[in-house]
Design a protein around this nucleic acid. Sequence first.
DNA 1: GCGTTACCGTAACGTACGTTACGACAGGGA
DNA 2: TCCCTGTCGTAACGTACGTTACGGTAACGC
Lengths: 202, 202
Amino acid sequence: MASRRDRVDQRLRLSAATWSVLAERGLPGLTLRAVAERAGCTTGMVLHTFADKQALLVHARELLHQRTGQRADAAQAAAETPGMALRAVLLQAAAPTAERQEEARVWVGFLAAALADPVLAELHRNYNRRFVDRVRGLVAAVRPDWPAADCSSTATGLVALVEGLNTLTAIDPATYSRAAQRVALDAALARLGPAAADHPSG
Amino acid sequence: MASRRDRVDQRLRLSAATWSVLAERGLPGLTLRAVAERAGCTTGMVLHTFADKQALLVHARELLHQRTGQRADAAQAAAETPGMALRAVLLQAAAPTAERQEEARVWVGFLAAALADPVLAELHRNYNRRFVDRVRGLVAAVRPDWPAADCSSTATGLVALVEGLNTLTAIDPATYSRAAQRVALDAALARLGPAAADHPSG
DNA sequence: GCGTTACCGTAACGTACGTTACGACAGGGA
DNA sequence: TCCCTGTCGTAACGTACGTTACGGTAACGC
């Protein structure tokens, strides 16, 4: 066979371009032509790498999940105690750095797309439940004395809070600043007792 | 002039149809033709009532705000204590009745649209800040001893939680059931002291 | 009753979309 | 070297969109 270019790298670049366009132009601006232009190629190449638009969307969605998962892993691994790990994981999921703010916009875009696309909806549910599981595990580590049901409900509540901070930050960063997010998160974590609130730098 | 039909009623029906289509087909499915079909008329009539698609979107967005505001007013007025009012307002904003679940989907659609449309974004910010103000006032009524800054941060946190419950319910009603929402909300309200948690029926 | 005026359905226009077909080109195997 | 297979840019197709122009129609003022 001839000129076997790096397909994996191409898929990655294209889905990153998808992401970039989605963050900048929103869901209506996400067209194959815009993605191709952003990636520096043509729509022909895009549809040679992905079967159709949905395949591109799905891959970009998986990429988003992969990145958030890796960052959560890193935050969790760097923490010294379960309480700090829980706080770090939640904070990085909601923190509005410039890069994260772009991710929040992309997240909202995929959420809206998922409302009309069963495949994306299934992905979204799976990824979110995985995140809930992660948080539930950390909650259980912080409060081993709690029954499983309490850990579960606490986890869903914390995830909902983070999700809400995410979406609200995407549309109104002025009201939902980084400081406001931290305060809201620490207030929720205070319910877990002093162990979770025990953090050095704030 | 001739046959002065009820323009106000027409605008209301059309924006309701916009809403209905948005809930059912999502943002990509929201076309003038779909709205016209749902409203039982033609695109010509739609564009005689509204100047263009964005005007229709704006009106539908205002209608959504109006309905949520009215329901919040009702919940607040029916409560006997400030604590119960706060809980009722937050619960009705997050509660996944069938009608409310449709509203949650519409809300997400408008949110995604606002990310690419400055006019809708401005509306969204204003309406959300108004809701935060409402919640802040209720928090201050429940805890008059708290400084304003604490009431403010508590309000933003509660709104973020409700918003997160809303979006997550829209995409995954199984995980975020009505019961799960109530538990998460009551857990957050418990931070305000026993006054807010004091509710008769649950 | 008739002219006028507003209303709204019909039909078309231009554009942009996702997708497809085709041709040029470049790298291995004989 | 020649062929052959895979790659990707080009160009077009059909469709659906937002929007506009136009004509018929029904109600008021006189």
